[in-house]
Design a protein around this nucleic acid. Structure first.
Lengths: 350, 350
DNA sequence: CTGAAAGCGCTTACAG
DNA sequence: CTGAAAGCGCTTACAG
């Protein structure tokens, strides 16, 4: 079955191409009868618009918006999804899509709100963002819903929203992967410490999933039978870390491994180095520069990577496919979990 | 500086678009004087053809050829690069590129030659292949060179050829990654066995690089100080494996880990299971189904993945970029090395 | 050696 | 409510 063109449909329906175009784009002003006829022919012949032609001729841009924390020295993590977004934007440039990037200061709810307002004012054809602040994000999704603007979550998601898609990691699985690594590296009766370094409570859901996955592993298959001790260090300040760790390590001399459920492992690594606890195994998340530093020095044994670049890249692609191509897209896309050691980091690209 | 069109060049040069097109495509029949003038204007204004328009109008297809071993039950490894090639082909379909896939029976030089002849007869605009048989591949590259057909290597490469690009893994790095994993999992004085399961000598270069990387790690940074014992099992037949391993493990009771430099680790895993040697750590390459089976059972501790899918995908993309877009492309692209354990395999996509 | 014209498949005013 | 026509930027014969 050769490709059917808009012209062919027009001929078969006995109308002009203009009319066909109108019904295909739902721009009204067409008799009901003509419309159904055309739609029928299109469907029967599985009409697929020629995107090349469309791109060439259409002068209207499709504007998407992204909203992420500003990547800073401290929070370089957000650099990679941003790169992915940029790359996708570049690839889709030929189809007249543009991505306007909005940023907010991390941990600043007010700024987040200001930026969402700006986006709503822009009235884009789609939005990519990470719902870091649950309450504010939920309010944002409500407004997007009202305007009929589709949105894709990256990094984490809000289940009780009407999101188009999610591209991100599976925290539970990430926790299990880490558990397997630690289980491999320690003896049967050694104890394990789980450290939650949450800056705000905001992240708790995410971290909990990782912790849950981690613990579940030992419930159903690990060799290790030691204690699993879990602590929380709400503000990841050095002195607080020192105090808490001093305490727990003193109480439990048998701790041979530490699992940190976030990307600030380097702070734990620093503590371990300072206190010459080099034989404690340390596993954490995200190959950001500070972590890579300690990975190379051997203080961190493994980092779990979660394809932040792909998260940004795929989110934009999904928006494109949904809005421009009207394809059905998969709602939840869990990216693979990468295990990174000091050797594999050399060629690592997230 | 706004985008300049072929029409603009024509105006500035005082000629017609047809003439401009002729010089831009080097189809001759243009006065030398006119030609230089046009080229000058194009260069000065940094003329970039509109690919969308070109794709829409051009009816000539661009045909690439790929040549890989037939993916079989036994050698499922070749399925993934093939998928990558297919996916890239699909994406480039709109630009009229077609990839004709050729296959040869693995380990059959004769068939390989037959297929290369067929490809030469097709006279494609580019070729993607893996130079598995050194001698035959070299002969093939010579003929391609003579016809001016660019070729991209995947999986391994022939240095002494005029290849356009290579997309694949870095065996040396892969070996080091494996070494780091084993070093992490065994005690300081345990011994390590390196097994080369080469079916033919063909693979020796590749395997040697992995072995070299593996050993180099222990030379310059590992904790482990035990013996590194290396054996070769030329035909990967079960009884031969049994015999050889029985022998070496009997001689060296202190072997606590085995590194297999190829994708047939599952054969070693089977041996270990049969002989109840479950506490020997086993690391090998490639998440093919048979290996995944033993990874899940715990007999294989880690698999190293090398993005075979990406190899196929990127190779075709590179050909496209070189031939159609005339972009400069990077000659050697080393893909990252993935560490896979029984937990991360769940979400793994190569 | 060169130009004028048609065409790729779609979209966009505009006229009726 | 509908059609005819121009145009997107390039390529392709064809005529001279």
């Amino acid at each position: 079955m050769a490709k059917i063109r808009i012209k062919d449909i027009a001929e078969q329906a006995g109308v002009s191409v203009g009319t066909v175009d109108r019904v295909l784009h739902n721009r009204g002003e067409v008799a009901e009868e003509t419309k159904t006829k055309i739609l029928e022919i299109a469907k029967k012949n599985n009409y697929q618009p020629n995107l090349i032609a469309r791109a060439l001729t259409s002068k209207k841009q499709c504007v998407f918006a992204s909203l992420l924390p500003t990547p800073t020295e401290e929070d370089i993590f957000w650099r990679r999804p941003l790169d992915g977004i940029s790359e996708a934007a570049e690839e889709l440039e030929q189809f007249q899509v543009v991505v306007k990037k909005y940023f907010f200061e991390h941990y600043n709810e007010q700024d987040f709100i200001v930026q969402t307002e700006a986006i709503l004012k822009l009235n884009p054809a789609g939005v990519v963002f990470s719902p870091i602040f649950t309450k504010e994000s939920l309010a944002f999704t409500k407004k997007l819903d009202k305007k009929g603007i589709p949105y894709v979550f990256i990094e984490s998601k809000l289940e009780n929203s009407n999101y188009l898609a999610y591209v991100g990691s599976d925290g539970y699985n990430g926790g299990r992967v880490a558990a397997n690594l630690i289980d491999f590296g320690i003896s049967k009766n050694a104890d394990v410490l789980v450290v939650n370094l949450a800056k705000n409570l905001e992240n708790v859901l995410h971290l909990n999933q990782r912790t849950q996955g981690f613990l579940s592993y030992f419930m159903d298959k690990g060799n290790n039978e030691g204690l699993k001790i879990s602590i929380e260090i709400p503000k990841s300040k050095s002195d607080l870390i020192k105090e808490k760790l001093n305490h727990v390590l003193k109480q439990n001399k048998n701790i041979k491994a530490i699992f940190t459920t976030g990307s600030k492992v380097y702070k734990i690594a620093r503590y371990l180095e300072t206190n010459q606890l080099n034989d404690i195994i340390l596993v954490g998340f995200d190959p950001i520069d500070q972590n890579i530093h300690y990975l190379n020095r051997g203080s961190i044994n493994f980092l779990i990577g979660q394809h932040p670049y792909q998260q940004g890249f795929k989110a934009v692609k999904k928006l494109f496919e949904h809005v421009l191509l009207q394809h059905k897209i998969s709602k939840d896309e869990y990216l693979p979990v990468d295990i990174i050691n000091c050797e594999s980091i050399k060629l690592y690209k997230a």
